[in-house]
Amino acid sequence: MGKTKKLIELDDKAIEILEKQAKLQKRSLKNYLEYTLEDTALRYSEPSEEYKKMMDDMLDRMEKGTLKTTPLKDVLKRYGREL
């Protein structure tokens, strides 16, 4: 996949905030912005065929009553967390 450069303008306050977030993640501002934008774009994208198949299977098992689930409180307890 190719790459495209874009010039963007952001408010100074927004840049200041984003720079702090980038430092917390030990990233440069440029890398942080690229990562954040690409991650956001992926969230808007169509789910993969594998994911759709997995979800269809889970929905089918739920309808048939064969889907096994674990209560959230049990999962949290397993990892030493609480609700």
Rank of each mutant, 00 (worst) to 15 (best):
E46V: 04
E50K: 01
L7R: 10
T40D: 11
L7C: 05
T69C: 01
T36D: 03
L42R: 06
M55Q: 11
T40I: 09
K30V: 08
A14C: 04
K64H: 00
K6L: 12
T69K: 02
E50S: 04
K52A: 03
L59Y: 03
E34F: 07
Q25S: 05
D11S: 13
K5G: 15
A22F: 00
G80Q: 12
P71M: 03
L72E: 03
E34T: 12
M54E: 08
Y79F: 15
L18Q: 05
K20S: 09
E50M: 04
I17E: 07
Q21C: 12
E19M: 07
E16Q: 11
Y32S: 06
K64A: 09
I8H: 02
Q25A: 12
K20E: 08
E38T: 11
A22E: 03
Y35G: 09
K73S: 14
D12A: 08
P71R: 08
A14I: 14
P71G: 02
L24W: 00
T4H: 01
K20D: 11
E38R: 06
S48Y: 02
L59G: 03
Y35H: 10
A41D: 00
T70Y: 07
Q25K: 14
E63D: 14
D57F: 08
E63V: 07
Y44D: 12
D60N: 15
G80N: 07
K77C: 03
M54I: 13
A41F: 04
K20T: 08
K52V: 07
L33S: 10
G2H: 12
L72Q: 06
K64W: 01
L29M: 13
L72T: 04
Y51K: 07
L18P: 00
E9D: 10
L76W: 03
K6R: 04
E19V: 01
G2Q: 13
R78M: 15
T70P: 13
E63I: 01
K30R: 15
K6V: 09
L18K: 02
Q21A: 14
Y32M: 12
K30Y: 08
K20Q: 15
D12Q: 13
A14F: 07
K68H: 05
E46L: 01
S48N: 07
M62L: 11
L72W: 00
Y51N: 08
T66G: 07
A41R: 05
K20N: 06
R43V: 01
D74T: 11
D60L: 07
L67G: 04
I8A: 02
